[in-house]
C-alpha cells in the first residue's frame, strides 16, 4: 500500500523528518505516537502534498506510484485521504457542494461520469449517518461555525464519502470529548476492510482503545525509533516518552 523510504523533509531551515522509514500493508492499521515536535503532523502534511514543506530526500511509493511526484489533488484522487488536525473553514462554500466537487473529481479520475443528484444525496445521507452528522451541518458552509467535535465528524464523513485506500488521521482525537471520540472511532471502524489501510497519528493511547491498531510506531526527532504491537501504546501511556528518548540516545 505505502512504502516510505528514508524520507527527509524540512520547513524553512529546519529539518523535521530525518530519514523516516515506514511500510503499511493493505488492510493494516498503523498508529504513530510521539512527543510534541517529533514530526508527526509534518509526516501527514508531506504525505498529503502540502507545499509548505520541502522534501529533501527519500521516496514514497503509494500503490506503485511515486507519491512525491504527484500534486495534492492527484494524491487524493488516487485514494489518499488526510483527516486534518485543524479542519479549514470555507465560508460561502456549502459542505454538500464541496463534497460533490470532490467526489466528481475522483470519479473523473476513474473515468466515471459525475454522480447523479439523487444518488449523491442518498450517498450523503448514508455516510452522514455513520458519524451522526445532522442535515443542518451538511448544508452549512464547510466547517464554518462547527464545534471542534463537529469538524472532526465532518472529516470522517468526508472520508466515508471518498472511500480512500489509505486514510491518514492527524490527531483526530484532539479536542474530542468521550462521546464524540466514540462516534468518530465507530465511523473509522465501520470503514475498516482488507483493502483499506489507516495511519493514525495521535498523542494519546485513548484513541487506540477504540481504533485498535495492528502496529504502533514511536516517532522521535524525525525517525521511527521503535515499532511494536498495540501493547506498546499502553506502555507509552504508563511510562511516557523519556525512556525511549534515553534508549535512543544511549
Amino acid at each position: 500500500m505505502l512504502t516510505i523510504n528514508k524520507l527527509k523533509a524540512s520547513i524553512g531551515d529546519s529539518e523535521i523528518l530525518k530519514g523516516l522509514d515506514l511500510t503499511i500493508g493493505p488492510g493494516e492499521v498503523h498508529a504513530i505516537m510521539g512527543p510534541n515536535g517529533s514530526g508527526k503532523s509534518t509526516l501527514a502534511s508531506v504525505l498529503a502534498g502540502r507545499e509548505d514543506y520541502a522534501v529533501t530526500g527519500g521516496k514514497v511509493d503509494f500503490l506503485g506510484m511515486e507519491l512525491l511526484e504527484m500534486d495534492a489533488t492527484a494524491r487524493a484522487r488516487s485514494g489518499l485521504f488526510l483527516a486534518f488536525q485543524y479542519p479549514v473553514e470555507i465560508p460561502g462554500v456549502s459542505n454538500i457542494n464541496f463534497m460533490r466537487a470532490a467526489l466528481n473529481g475522483k470519479r473523473a479520475h476513474e473515468g466515471l461520469e459525475p454522480i447523479a443528484g439523487k444518488a449523491f444525496l442518498e450517498l450523503v445521507k448514508e455516510k452522514a449517518s455513520l458519524v451522526e452528522l445532522d442535515g443542518r451541518l451538511r448544508n452549512r458552509s464547510v466547517n464554518e461555525g462547527f464545534s471542534g467535535g463537529e469538524k472532526k465528524r465532518n472529516e470522517i464523513f468526508q472520508m466515508a464519502m471518498l472511500e480512500p485506500k489509505l486514510a491518514v488521521l492527524d490527531e483526530t482525537d484532539s479536542g474530542l470529548d468521550i462521546d464524540a471520540l466514540r462516534i468518530v472511532a465507530n465511523g473509522v471502524n465501520s470503514m475498516r476492510s482488507p483493502e483499506r489501510s489507516f495511519l493514525v497519528i495521535t498523542h494519546y493511547q485513548r484513541l487506540l482503545d477504540y481504533i485498535v491498531p495492528d502496529f504502533v510506531h514511536v516517532l522521535v526527532d524525525g525517525r521511527i525509533v521503535r515499532t511494536g504491537g498495540k501493547e506498546l501504546a499502553l506502555e507509552l501511556e504508563e511510562r511516557g516518552y523519556d525512556w525511549i528518548k534515553e534508549a535512543v540516545t544511549s
Binding site: G49, T73, F84, P87, I90, A101, A102, H109
Partner: peptide, 12 residues
C-alpha cells in the same frame, strides 16, 4: 482553503 479542497481531490 485551497489546500484543503485539493486534499479532497478538487482541482486547483
Amino acid at each position: 482553503a485551497l489546500f484543503y479542497a485539493r486534499s479532497r481531490g478538487i482541482g486547483e
